[in-house]
Design a protein around this nucleic acid. Structure first.
Lengths: 363, 363
DNA sequence: AGCGGGTGCTAAATCGATCTAGCATTCAGG
DNA sequence: CCTGAATGCTAGATCGATTTAGCACCCGCT
């Protein structure tokens, strides 16, 4: 008998770590029996007494199974990888990770996180490394909603596309419901009483709008948001007064410049639908600089639901990207035995702010 | 001979996956020899010819070593875990992850990411799961800089504390250099000409300032930032005009409320040092509401360097948390053979904004 | 010829689990 | 009393690598 009963006071004779052999020996049974008990296999006809003895021995010795050995034997590792081109670039990426983690936690799986920086040779190296470790599945994620090529090396591994679509049209994808979000944005303005002088801020530069070459960022989000906006306005018997191009990146400075340009051209909008929060913040700066008040003179609504939306006064009304839920759904789908290709659209919730009011009656 | 030379056209007889046995067989050598070649062991006296033959065989068969088997044999897995209480809550957490990933990538290690939500029983379960997979080390991270208890189960595993300190005073920690950041913040104001009417926004409620019970969030950041501020001002022969308590959480609303209260009490500050960007944004709202302009009437400087700092007009001058570099350093230290306890302080860079100007000469 | 020493390679144990095949034993039925 | 089935457990192969110990050969030297 060991001198103490606490698991920490192990006998001095313990060589390194407690293995199944030690448990079996202590319980006076074969390793096979011990294995059956520990993995809870009831199909193996073991007496209740053996069950109890093995359980007790494992408990007393503080047995922790070596999952590496188990993986080698079974081929399943209980791990999953999130392979993405971002991790840090966008602040809500981590929300997606957290959603995935929550779901994986319930399935006793661990998550590898890798960042490919969009470099193919790095991605290839990392995937080899992951597959060599017998990962059970891959969440293939993108920073912005876009079309991607799933590496062929993953053909024998369960994959869920997170925030992206496969360019071959296959695969299981989890993406935000951008079109509905567009409708919601438009509807918020319509319900507030806006009918005309509604502008969209965040179009592509003219040369790229109709072309096949999209910039690598956010083409789907843009086109689908626009689609929803246009549909909702059309159903209400109206349409956008026009749209404003935002150059390069959808950030604060470019949003400000775009709207400043619009105002300088003499246009007097009553409402702006901004392609994202950063552009909306920039738009707010431009409006204020022109002496216009939000929402009294101009209403603002935007997309993404970032912390940035809370920074202004008033806070922006924004349609949030459902990153937490997307991560959760994607992780959950990884374990779905049904592998038929499909696209899961996750609803984007409205985050109320104070940036929408009815149009002023006066000129 | 295989019909094709491309690795993708494997012979139809291939059972499942290419193992070292297949390579050895094809090269006409023993498995041992093949292993020596593949792991590049030059101490094993193998002819150049065998080397070449094994290399060629591996290449032709498209051999990918099974790392699970290697881990089982060697006890080292080439993986590391980031165990934290956050992952999503703060947007810059992912920046820390990215820093770690960059460093790990160069060392051919993969990263597990787990989120304990601060729950001990969950942490314990996750650590067991990780250790059972033979992880080589742990980055033990916290959302806010604070003191933590490293779980005893990690005593035989290399650990680096990321953004936290061990309550037993031991361990290797990587933390922001908050005191220097505090000095920098004060110096920026001093250099702009401010001497008096400098206020600090973000003190603890009175009952907690001197007590031993700190709130779980950011005590270290606060006290050290204050320390640096006070030192720099003292060196310049001056001191804070006073400090303002921010209740509960350091967010925009509470920052606004705190500064609104200060202004309502009749105080007319010339400069505010805010404990973080969110509070500074809130402070900006309160100032503007009182008809004060930034930076003409009141200068603002804050800490953290979040995207929020760019949201206002003018952008905030802020001292940034060096999360990327911290992640990188921590990962790098995990591989350091020198395990003597120490604290690495990573400098916090100044992010210039437009929120600081000289004090107005008039009243 | 015999012997020490270097060279080039292999056999077999090992890591720690899973899992198939099969050995004893008991029991029911004829 | 003998047979066949059910019961309870174990031996040993297996996953795919690493690594120790040692075999066989050749060389030079006395």
């Amino acid at each position: 008998m060991a001198s103490g009963k606490t698991p920490s006071s192990k006998t001095p004779s313990s060589p390194r770590r407690i293995t199944l052999n030690h448990v079996a020996e202590r319980a006076g049974v074969s390793r096979s029996a011990a294995s059956f008990v520990m993995s809870g296999r009831t199909d193996q006809r073991l007496s209740a007494e053996v069950f109890a003895r093995v359980r007790a021995a494992a408990e007393e010795l503080g047995y922790k199974p070596n999952l590496t050995a188990k993986t080698l034997r079974t081929g399943r590792s209980g791990t999953v990888a999130l392979v993405s081109d971002f991790v840090s670039t966008t602040s809500f990426a981590s929300t997606m990770v957290r959603g995935a983690l929550e779901e994986l936690c319930e399935r006793d799986s661990l998550l590898f996180t890798v960042d490919t920086h969009g470099r193919e040779e790095l991605e290839s190296r990392l995937l080899d490394s992951l597959l060599a470790r017998n990962i059970d599945g891959v969440l293939y994620a993108s920073m912005f909603t876009r079309s991607v090529t799933v590496p062929p090396v993953l053909k024998d591994t369960p994959v869920v596309l997170l925030n992206c679509l496969s360019d071959d049209g296959g695969g299981i994808s989890v993406i935000p419901d951008e079109a509905s979000a567009g409708e919601d944005a438009a509807r918020l303005l319509l319900e507030a009483g806006h009918v005309q002088d509604i502008w969209f801020v965040g179009s592509m530069p003219p040369g790229q709008v109709g072309g096949t070459i999209w910039p690598p960022w956010a083409p789907l989000a843009l086109s689908e948001r626009r689609e929803g906006i246009d549909r909702a306005l059309k159903n209400a018997g109206t349409s956008l007064a026009g749209s404003v191009v935002v150059e390069d990146d959808w950030d604060i400075a470019n949003g400000r410049a775009a709207v400043a340009g619009l105002l300088a051209s003499g246009v007097r909008p009553r409402a702006l639908i901004c392609v994202n929060d950063a552009v909306a913040i920039g738009a707010g700066h431009a409006l204020r600089a022109a002496g216009l008040r939000i929402p009294d003179d101009v209403s603002l609504v935007s997309f993404d639901g970032t912390p940035l939306a809370q920074a202004g006064e008033p806070a922006l009304t924004t349609i949030a990207l459902p990153h937490l839920e997307m991560g959760r759904r994607a992780a959950s789908l990884l374990f779905d035995t049904d592998r038929t290709p499909r696209r899961i659209r996750v609803p984007m919730p409205v985050v109320p702010g104070g940036s929408i009011a009815g149009p002023r009656t006066g000129p």
